[in-house]
Design a protein around this nucleic acid. Sequence first.
DNA 1: TCGAGCAAATCAGTTCTCCTAATGAGTAAT
DNA 2: ATTACTCATTAGGAGAACTGATTTGCTCGA
Lengths: 298, 298
Amino acid sequence: MLDYKLLAALAAVVEQAGFERAAQVLGLSQSAVSQRIKLLEARVGQPVLVRALPPVPTEIGRRLLNHVQQVRLLERDIQAQVPGLDEGGPPERLRIALNADSLATWWAQAVGGFCTEQGLLLELLVEDQDVGLKRMRAGEVAACVCGSERPVAGARALLLGSMRYRALASPGFIARYFPRGVTAAELAQAPAIVFGPDDLLQHRYLSALGVEGGFAYHLCPSSEGFVRLAEAGLGWGLMPELQVQEELAAGRLCELLPERPLDVPLYWHHWRSGGELLGALTQHLQRHAAAGLVAAKR
Amino acid sequence: MLDYKLLAALAAVVEQAGFERAAQVLGLSQSAVSQRIKLLEARVGQPVLVRALPPVPTEIGRRLLNHVQQVRLLERDIQAQVPGLDEGGPPERLRIALNADSLATWWAQAVGGFCTEQGLLLELLVEDQDVGLKRMRAGEVAACVCGSERPVAGARALLLGSMRYRALASPGFIARYFPRGVTAAELAQAPAIVFGPDDLLQHRYLSALGVEGGFAYHLCPSSEGFVRLAEAGLGWGLMPELQVQEELAAGRLCELLPERPLDVPLYWHHWRSGGELLGALTQHLQRHAAAGLVAAKR
DNA sequence: TCGAGCAAATCAGTTCTCCTAATGAGTAAT
DNA sequence: ATTACTCATTAGGAGAACTGATTTGCTCGA
């Protein structure tokens, strides 16, 4: 059997993004962590971490990490079966990566019941679009919600449905930039709002409209803030329908190009050997995610 | 994370059926094994082994064992991915329980290619009929072939096909016991051959013919021996069609009741979280087991 | 009822793993 | 340069865990 003390150290270093913090989490000294990693590398015969800021697992390291992730999921099952095996440590949370918009809209509704029922704690990591898959590949998370269809090795991807985005702006903004109605070319000239550097929604929307080249945009890495900026007339942006129903109804935001929504399919990626709990969560999502999403068309 | 040194000790004790032998396998003293088990029980808060001959895992113990089994399967995958992680120990074999008749007939053909391709070593445990499932439940084996449809918790059962048995005896035996032809009632009076105490084939065959009550039988726990006994005229028995084609063709064995074969469905039980190797083996079997089996009808 | 034989538990002593603490070295920002 | 930060290295020591010897407990057979 592998030495899981060493693997746990590797996992802690990557998850905590540093030896020092990893040591704290493990209840050890920084030195001990360093030694464990070194010993692990000696056993494996090659480095498992690239010493950078933050430390990044090597190819081998990633494989080991996602093995650890899978074993942890199995352990979760058995700890549910065998009382008094809780290790005394803090109750482990299930780490899941998802995109900010999902978290801001349908996620809580969809998983709320399951978590209270099962007494399950989550550790949610917000990641733009497809970056969550990287975490998955590195074995840092048990599952993720993202836009990529292709599962990583050892995992499965399940289509949950699509999130419908609409291009919105405040009435004042529209009056100012589009006095003669909205056209694709003009849209590219008006300032936009973009969630983060990895957020390519607006880019995709514009290129779907046939507009090439760059455009000016604000960066605002907060879902709520995003809506507030749009309301304040700073720019136009693509917002999840679900999140802005009130603003639309009250007329604080208006649609630029009606009947041109953007549907973004969302996939649930989860380890194939994820144990019963993750399996149950997957089933639950399959049934309850649809409520907040539109049926996907490809 | 659980302490896998302790769990490995538990597994060794159960698999080797004793502390002493477990110690040898682990490269430790008997004393050390005893202490590990005790420590494990202290952690868990209750006994994991019933001290008997051989030691038997408790309910909790079985759950732990089959967790170990699943983790081992995952480790096998990663060891294939990460060279130089072989632990130096002896190459771990994949433990599989199956019934003697399968081993005597189609098994080798079905898995031969896969094993050589993948460089996979097997440790086969021969178990009568459904006893293999117990090994599965105890986490002692990674998979098993048996007649039960119902999978163990955490595992899947896959119908492979049916084995066709025919009731056969030597010409001399038939002439002696059934001079006027074979009838069900007379069959129950003639001595039978039964594989082992758990082998209920003949019982089922007779009760399917409407015969109630006991009958006289030899016990012979060897597939080859079984056929030899029948050839020698010691009794009649149900033999896999596959195994006795030569004897039938040569006239050394004859069918008692033509057109009354007994088809026994066989299922492949494997852990759901068994990793890629076990998954691949399962697929392989699904494709190649059929060759030696008749399509199952229910 | 009593030993013989065997398996596991216990105990005392020792080994050696693994940790801590202090220090050193490399890198980036000030 | 200096400071701040992170990780590596080293020596030394605590204690976990192993070994070997012995005891306990059980099962048979006489």
